[in-house]
Write a protein that binds this DNA or RNA. Structure first.
Length: 783
DNA sequence: GGACTCCGTATACC
DNA sequence: ACGGGTATACGGAGTCC
């Protein structure tokens, strides 16, 4: 039943939806080249639990008792959006009177469940979704790039300054059309008028830009405001509206503006990139040229027959057009993923882009429950559940190494064991997971067939993430259908599977290095000496585990530096090094420390101990003699709460003082949440209290360096200490000392491997407790 | 005053 | 508006000798 996944209404070719003034929903449909619309009834609704229904509400509404015994067993519907809110205000008042509380928001009413977005409500109610029966290229997408003038001497163009203005606007679309405006037009007002005319004429479904919400739209709207003209580009001929995303973080209001336009979708390539690289480890910047090149934009410099002249490169008009093309390329690669998702989830395209997985999963459930007129549950109260299994067996420099993992372990467990929330009577959870898995595999195969098609890669990647979130949803404290027992069952099953694989590897003569949740690093048995042997060994091993779980040989490595649980580095057969773990790559470490760790890992993995020694000596002396830049030793931290809240908490002794906040308070300038402050440690004593001895990085003067050398030398030692376990003490002291060795260190120093459980015994001097598996000691005796 | 523990925060892995 | 648990590093504050 794919209706459960796509919604039960087959209405094709929907490209936009918005509410009209008379409380209908206007649905725009693209047929070949024309866009038409039709208005449909819309009944705003919410879920409510018995006993809380109002008896004295006289505006038009319907109360429906839903089937089943889940907590929210009534749905209340209205003919007008305003009436629904009226009802809710009455609910709040009644509740406040009865309880003496002073609740101000519907989110505080535990007996009410409301989906706050009108369009999403409509899509749930009607079973419609966007883009059914359409191909991605059928959607008409327009890219926009603006070139602004800035007053000489200023850093950025400012729409508020009368001198600054829009010079050119470049427009492209996915049909290959391109246009520059601002060359012929006499005034900025004419440029904007021309822009509006073009948008209305071309009539795109999607308007795309880089920094669309933070730069392009606010700039254009500000200029329109100053010139007292409308930017009415909506299909209803209205202007964009701002949704001040007023989400409150403690006592501080953080504003992030988003714009909406009736009848079209605004897509900011920045959001797509942010979703692509949420951890911030892949992309080094969001600069348009950099990111489009990263995704493989065929730039002119790569095409010798179309050589780019210097004049052209410096031409702002050409550059502006080039930017629009780069946006088109970027969204062409990243947007199909959301196009596909929009066919499934009841969201308007632009809302879908910044929605989390839990919300998506939940709306699939709710849509089906509404369709079946079935009651929906409330969240279970929070409870600690078990997680994945992690362990480390060997520390040191080890090779060769294999990495095996159970493919999509948690989702597979859910499907194979038919796990679903107890409240999910209609079995939507498991059904949708299976359907989403099919789609993921379909796109994974498509990508295997054509590796040039990046959009297939992105689709399978995001669907994989979504599928993996099904486990997280079960333990999500706000999830209506959460079920902690089921989440527990999944992670316990996962632990068993992993322990089973560990035993199999050990029984076949392999040695485990490190395991985490669903993957295992191990040394193949000695008789396995090459890639073919490894593959054969793995296949034999694989036969020992239950067929429904797919164990795969994910990768093989020349060497591995195993440090602690979740902290290691690998060296592959192309000599590429990958470092993992917060102890080894944390952003919290100063740049010099990060460099040091990287050098240590690189040189240890390559047996270059002499080089490492020289590097260490040089670094030590650079620090001791202030031969470095503030960027090398400053630390950057983000203000995570408001200064007033910080002060309050410190005074109440609920929180420790912290250097960044003290600096922000001292400076007197206005800092807000999210601001980043770079600072360094001053003073002379090694063990200074950092919040009393710190300065903003800008104030460091290379001519009068006042950084705390002794503190930073201590930091240096702290980082090098991490590598102590890899050597005998004598060897370690040869590398990390200032003295010159008479011999070549590469001839005498050797890195070593330690059995971690043995080490534990030695350090603690304790009898080993039964925390390790009963067979843990058997194979340790070998070698 | 140093060594130790405890605790909260930040970051990373899967 | 918001998936989860497991793990390491680190600074501050309190405790003990």
């Amino acid at each position: 039943m794919t209706d459960i996944l796509y919604g039960h209404n087959p209405h094709p070719n929907i490209v936009a939806v918005h509410p009209t003034e008379d409380n209908k929903m206007r649905v725009y449909v693209r047929d070949k080249k024309q866009v038409s619309f039709e208005d449909f009834d819309f009944f705003p609704f919410f879920f409510i639990s018995e006993n809380y229904l109002l008896t004295n509400f006289h505006r038009r509404h319907w109360v429906k008792r839903l089937e089943g015994e889940n907590y929210f067993e009534h749905i209340v519907a209205f003919s007008r959006w305003f009436d629904m809110w009226d009802y809710i205000h009455n609910l709040l008042n009644t509740h406040n009177q009865q309880t003496g509380k002073n609740l101000s928001s519907f989110t505080d009413l535990p007996f009410l469940h409301l989906i706050p977005d009108q369009i999403t409500q409509f899509l749930i109610q009607s079973g419609r979704t966007f883009f059914k029966e359409m191909d991605f290229e059928d959607v008409h997408r327009l890219q926009i790039s603006i070139e602004t003038y800035k007053k000489p001497g200023t850093r950025l163009s400012n729409a508020n300054r009368s001198d600054d203005r829009i010079l050119y606007i470049a427009l492209t679309d996915n049909k290959g059309w391109e246009k520059i405006i601002g060359k012929k037009e006499k005034s900025e007002k004419e440029v904007i008028a021309q822009l509006i005319e073009i948008i209305r004429d071309r009539n795109p479904d999607v308007i795309e830009g880089h920094y669309l919400h933070n730069h392009i739209l606010p700039y254009i709207l500000k200029r329109c405001e100053l010139m007292e003209c409308e930017f009415n580009i909506g299909r209803d001929e209205k202007s964009p509206t701002v949704c001040e995303n007023l989400f409150y973080q403690q006592d501080f209001q953080q504003d992030s503006k988003k714009y909406e336009i009736n009848g079209r979708n605004f897509v900011d390539s920045l959001s797509l990139l942010h979703n692509f690289d949420a951890s911030g480890k892949i992309l080094h910047s969001y600069n348009l040229k950099y990111v489009s090149d990263f995704f493989g934009y065929p730039s002119k410099t790569n095409q010798p027959d179309e050589a780019i002249s210097d004049a052209e490169a410096a031409d702002p008009v050409a550059e502006c057009l080039e930017n629009a093309k780069r946006i088109r390329y970027l969204t062409g690669s990243l947007l199909p993923n959301y196009f596909k998702q929009a066919q499934i989830f009841p969201y308007k395209l632009d809302n879908l882009i910044d929605t989390g997985s839990a919300a998506k999963i939940e709306l699939l459930l709710i849509r089906e429950y509404v369709h079946n007129k079935y009651s929906i549950p409330k969240p279970q109260s929070q409870k600690q559940i078990s997680g994945g299994h992690t362990d480390i067996f060997l520390r040191g420099v080890i090779g060769p190494v294999l990495y095996a993992d159970v493919e999509s372990m948690y989702p597979t467990i859910i499907i194979k064991q038919n796990i679903a929330p107890a409240s999910d009577i209609l079995n939507v959870f498991n059904t949708t997971l299976q359907e989403l898995t099919k789609i993921r595999l379909e796109y994974k195969n498509k990508f295997q067939e054509d590796k040039n098609n990046q959009s297939h890669y992105h689709i399978q990647r995001d669907f994989k993430q979504l599928i993996n979130s099904y486990y997280g949803y079960l333990a999500y404290h706000r999830g209506l259908f959460n079920d902690y027992d089921m989440a527990d069952k999944i992670s316990e099953t996962g632990k068993e599977i992993l322990k089973n694989v560990i035993e199999i590897i050990q029984s076949r003569g392999g040695k485990i290095i490190e395991v985490d949740t669903d993957g295992i690093y191990f040394i193949p048995p000695e008789h396995v000496t090459d890639e073919i042997g490894e593959e054969k060994f793995f296949q034999r091993m694989k036969n020992d585990i239950p067929q429904e779980y797919n164990l795969i040989l994910d990768s093989r490595y020349k060497k591995m530096l195993s440090y602690k649980k979740k902290n290691y580095a690998t060296l592959d057969y192309e000599n590429k090094i990958q470092i993992k773990g917060s102890a080894l790559i944390s952003k919290n470490i100063e740049r010099f420390g990060k460099n040091l760790i990287q050098q240590c890992i690189e040189r240890i993995l390559n047996d270059d101990f002499t080089g490492l020694h020289i590097f260490y000596v040089n670094l030590f002396q650079d620090i001791a003699n202030h031969r470095w830049q503030v960027q090398d030793f400053m630390r950057i931290e983000t203000l995570k709460e408001s200064l007033s809240r910080y002060k309050k908490e410190v005074e109440a002794e609920k929180r420790n003082r912290s250097a960044v906040y003290e600096l922000a308070l001292k400076s007197g300038s206005k800092y807000k949440i999210g601001d980043r402050i770079a600072y360094y440690i001053t003073g002379t004593d090694t063990n200074v209290t950092s919040y009393e001895n710190c300065k903003v990085a800008d104030k460091w003067d290379p001519n009068f360096p006042d950084e705390n050398t002794s503190y930073y030398l201590k930091r240096l030692e702290e980082q090098t200490k991490k590598f102590k376990p890899f050597f005998d003490e004598h060897d370690f002291n040869l590398i990390f000392s200032l003295e010159e060795s008479l011999e070549d260190l590469n001839d005498i120093v050797k890195s070593k491997i330690i059995e971690v459980s043995e080490e534990k015994e030695q350090e603690d001097g304790e009898i080993q407790k039964d925390t390790t598996p009963e067979d843990g000691g058997i194979w340790l005796a070998t070698e």
